[in-house]
Design a binder for these strands. Structure first.
Ligand SMILES: [Zn+2]
Ligand SMILES: [Zn+2]
Ligand SMILES: [Zn+2]
Ligand SMILES: [Zn+2]
Lengths: 275, 275
DNA sequence: GAATCATAAC
DNA sequence: GAATCATAAC
């Protein structure tokens, strides 16, 4: 089964930074920066429209075509790859990728209309969700009030009362969301499995936040949407990305104030871990 | 004397976030975001040039005029205010503000030509630097190899050898830089007292980094620059802000790759604390 | 998808 | 000084 990552917990907002850095190609041997400035100083010209053909949309292809040699993949079988998001937008952020070529190329809102496929995705997603919850527990149980008595007993600091069983763990799965984006950017279908906290150095602007905490995000439980549901959803995000940012935990509306939201998320993160 | 701040150390890149948030005025009651979009959708017009008269340049005025009621001030006397930078660009970031009206309005490169004033600034800066070093020690000694034996003895984990004195502390002042910007933005003269790490959620772009780790930053020890030195300095930053970012610790050149530098600073921060 | 740079408005 | 938004180029 999928094991949660064993990334060393450190005082960092870029927890998978090392991985990202390792996979990064060397710096482009671009023109010297000051020379660039000189050239444009007197005759500023708009850069020409790019003819770059978007290969970044296919960046998830390797994870399903060659999972055995893709370091982002931490588990796979014939049907699915379990993947670390390279730019995690929360403390835990995994992707579930269907490996079937045809399904993988379909739009998630279309593919998940098929009840057979939906059922298979739900089974796999439940596994990945459990894995994500386990990772939250591994990293944050030590801050959690609900885990305290259990941990104290396990560590021999406290003793069980007579007839007392070992206390249960906090339900970390409640801290995990599972779903898809209404309009994904990368073309291989992917289901996000992400913790609610949105505490990450990779969360850098409004779209990042609202991709997961607005109507742009469709929970797997909501499927099948039905035609009416789907149309309603698209109306709801008509003004995307110009939609307010709402705190996932307390509901406070931050309008378009992303930096204020970031500071608030930082505080909510600590309180949430402490629950 | 100036005492270091007692901010609770937590897993946060916005350590003075609470302060910043508290001082922030309520959100502007601006037009609804979606309405804005509608208005500009068919006839996009550039926003009019602002007539806003820059009061933000005077934002440090209160710290020297009314230090007793400015929460950023943590120590002051007749000559200087010691201040927390509201947007710290490193784990410790203080400002030293001369309170004399005339000196405060002068350009630092001009004012520090006066040997009397320079000497007074150096005395005050030494105090603030010591305070900053003490704060580094308070927060990071527990990660430091150089502090380990000392702390183990203080905590009773180890015992002193015969004739052994208590081991000295790490020299945390080596981790502090003191100096001014060649072209400050805020008009009240301020001397930066800042740890080298540049680990901060408020460090967001190249100018932030290079303001402290390029020739744009003039160390207090370098004064007096002399006319030649000053002119040379200005030539060296002619291409500002288009100058390469160089890691403060290992000297690696990150060119204009700010995000890569951020990830690297994160790693250097851990290694530096562990020294 | 990420990232650098530029631009208002404050 | 900070912050939102837009724009290339990849
Ligand atoms: Zn996506
Ligand atoms: Zn909240
Ligand atoms: Zn300044
Ligand atoms: Zn380095």
């Amino acid at each position: 089964m999928a094991e949660p990552p064993t990334t060393k917990t450190k005082n960092s907002t870029f927890s998978t930074a090392a991985l990202a850095a390792k996979k990064q190609t060397a710096f482009d041997s671009m023109m010297n920066a000051s020379k660039r400035k000189d050239l444009t100083a007197e005759s500023p010209q708009p850069r020409k429209k790019s003819t770059y053909q978007v290969s970044w949309r296919k960046l998830l292809g390797d994870a399903i075509d060659h999972p055995e040699r893709d370091s982002r993949v931490f588990y796979y079988d014939d049907d699915f790859s379990f993947v670390y998001d390279k730019y995690p937008k929360a403390s835990v952020h995994f992707l579930l990728l269907p490996r079937d070529k045809k399904l993988s190329m379909a739009h998630p809102l279309e593919a998940l209309k098929d009840p057979i496929f939906l059922a298979k995705v739900r089974v796999a997603a439940a596994k990945l969700k459990a894995s994500a919850a386990k990772e939250l527990q591994r990293r944050f149980a030590k801050f959690s009030k609900q885990e305290k008595r259990r941990l104290d007993i396990l560590n021999g600091v406290l003793e069980l009362d007579d007839d007392e069983g070992l206390p249960g763990s906090r339900d970390w799965e409640k801290g995990i969301r599972v779903g898809v984006h209404t309009h994904p950017s990368m073309e291989h279908m992917h289901i996000h499995v992400i913790s609610k906290d949105m505490f990450s150095g990779y969360l850098k602007h409004r779209k990042h936040y609202n991709s997961f905490h607005s109507r742009f995000f469709v929970n797997l439980e909501e499927f099948p949407l039905g035609e009416d549901g789907e149309n309603k959803r698209k109306r709801e995000i008509w003004h995307w990305p110009d939609v307010d940012m709402i705190c996932w935990r307390c509901g406070k509306n931050f309008k378009n104030k992303f930096t204020q939201l970031k500071i608030h998320l930082d505080e909510e993160f600590d309180e949430w871990k402490a629950e």
